[in-house]
Design a protein around this nucleic acid. Sequence first.
DNA 1: TTCGCTTAGTTATACGTATTACTAAAGCAA
DNA 2: TTGCTTTAGTAATACGTATAACTAAGCGAA
Lengths: 351, 351
Amino acid sequence: MTTSTTRTKRGKGRDKAAPARPTQKDIALAAGVSQAAVSLVLNKTETPSVPSATRTRIIEVAEGLGYRPNHPARMLRSARTMTFACVIPDITNPFYPGLVRGLQAVAAPAGYDVLIFDTDGRPEREARAIDWLLQGRADGVVATFFHLRVPQLAVLARKGIPLVRLESRHKPDGPLAIDSVYIDNAEAAAEMTRLLIARGHRRIAMIQAEFGPSQRRAQGYSAVMREAGLSPDFVTDSAYSEESGARAMNRLLERRGERPTAVFGASDVLALGAMEAARNAGLSIPGDIAIAGFDDIPVAKLLGLTTVRQPEFDLGALAAETLVRRLQPGGLGSPGKSRELKFEIMKRSSV
Amino acid sequence: MTTSTTRTKRGKGRDKAAPARPTQKDIALAAGVSQAAVSLVLNKTETPSVPSATRTRIIEVAEGLGYRPNHPARMLRSARTMTFACVIPDITNPFYPGLVRGLQAVAAPAGYDVLIFDTDGRPEREARAIDWLLQGRADGVVATFFHLRVPQLAVLARKGIPLVRLESRHKPDGPLAIDSVYIDNAEAAAEMTRLLIARGHRRIAMIQAEFGPSQRRAQGYSAVMREAGLSPDFVTDSAYSEESGARAMNRLLERRGERPTAVFGASDVLALGAMEAARNAGLSIPGDIAIAGFDDIPVAKLLGLTTVRQPEFDLGALAAETLVRRLQPGGLGSPGKSRELKFEIMKRSSV
DNA sequence: TTCGCTTAGTTATACGTATTACTAAAGCAA
DNA sequence: TTGCTTTAGTAATACGTATAACTAAGCGAA
């Protein structure tokens, strides 16, 4: 609008002051060598066919022009994106940022970046994620799928894209390059349920979500309840969100007859929502009602929530390690493994 | 399979039946047309030179083979990555996931993905981010830099990569494609300080971090304090983390002489750390000490933290819109604009 | 002299796509 | 018949890189 020169950024326009991104060709031209020589020097630490004088000259010219390798071109040529995709329901759920950092911690030193894809736990978004991955945007994937199962995921492995699933239980080895990392969700939930029973609770309800890891947690809870001669009591809401948790808790509180004395949220976010709803209803925690969660997101500590600790960072790091190994030559051949990390019961003040 | 012409063309023929990702060439071969025809049909909605019979055949073959366009090749050819980079200190800070979702909400419908780069607020990581962006990995950037200033960032704009900064105040228009979105951090901090004074506090300390938006917030606080004839009282720690907040609070509590009656954390995360330290020291909030924060991260509500609301999602969405507009033809020419969103004081129970 | 070896590179090609420029064949009018 | 238009495509090229295959010059040895 003002006095601005219409600058053509790149293209055959070739005007002098246009600071386009210089390519190896530009360096070659400026240094009086071929493009191949430039590529050689810039990529190999030892170049038998290029003497150090030329080497130095090329490097100096490259620095002088501010050369940066063109990533897309590299990807195309080498069929490697040097990117991991992280497919998760929602980065806003405080469980996942820690996982992502774990991923990054291992991926970055190995030269990989991390791309995030949110599915919102919806089947069509999960399908879109697969489609998107098949476009060669990532060399490997770490993912939590609520809906897709191995048959739908196998296509990735078949196209040479290893996948590490964040799972809720041990998976039998499979022939494809689909691995998993997990903590034993059923056992963890079982142990938490035992704790609640040991504290004297008999009417214990579980707030669960429709899909995802909540199912496995529900199994552990159910098993222990029945073992103790108590009847499982589920309230199901749609998502892993505070709103869902609060809604579920309100449904519990509206019940006529005997209310539960303890509520086990299938995830911390659900438990926190439940906690707030309980407080809003004038109940004290754990006096009037005990609340337990699952995940141990960072705020759980601040709020004194008794919960199951999932080592999110370590899970991410382990997943990344698995991918890095898979992507080494010949790594795709071995059978899919399931690797376990240990959970921990964090006893705080909400139970 | 039916026709045994499935050949492995990538990977030097190691695997036997490896179903490589089919390319346009493969489709062309199978459909008896040229690669150009395939590209035409698959990309244009109207193809005057390809009759609908051929069109249909090509599309069917493409679907039959499970064709997915190769993203790197597209990027190279079209010089468009269809990716936005989001450069932030730490995705683990609960302020940022919401920002990312706002970004995604606008970016995705426009066809852009979002890549996350964590800097940890360290200068060398920020420099690495720039370097990394210059490799043509993203078409546009949304970023929070603690250390880099316009001179160092200008290189992006000069190479045709628009940048939207998440800022703490209005920036004068500049000639480059560097925009910013912000809330008026100084005024917000000023207003919060006024609230604390209005509640009767006279000894009000601020916990701040060494770099980043904390500085601007400190200015607003200082101004109001001095205006009221009170002296500003800073405790500085390194990062925007709970540990830093707790450490700073402990330093305040260890002071001999008169303790502050209110503590203003330059960010919610700092305030939460301070809150925990205060509780651990046996103080009640707000009875013994009032605590205020800045950001309004999701847990602030759960913990009853009085704080300044930054519309994180909207900031992200606005940033993305700005980028999308910049990337439309001719969008890079206009001067860099600074766009403001409104903050809100969230009065809860910690003050 | 010829042969072989080393040095210092260069040339050529491929990755998969998008796009521009071109063309062969058919149809039709004059 | 020629000339022109339409139809239905194809061939060629470029994007920037990595790498395999090649070469020209110089030198020493047989």
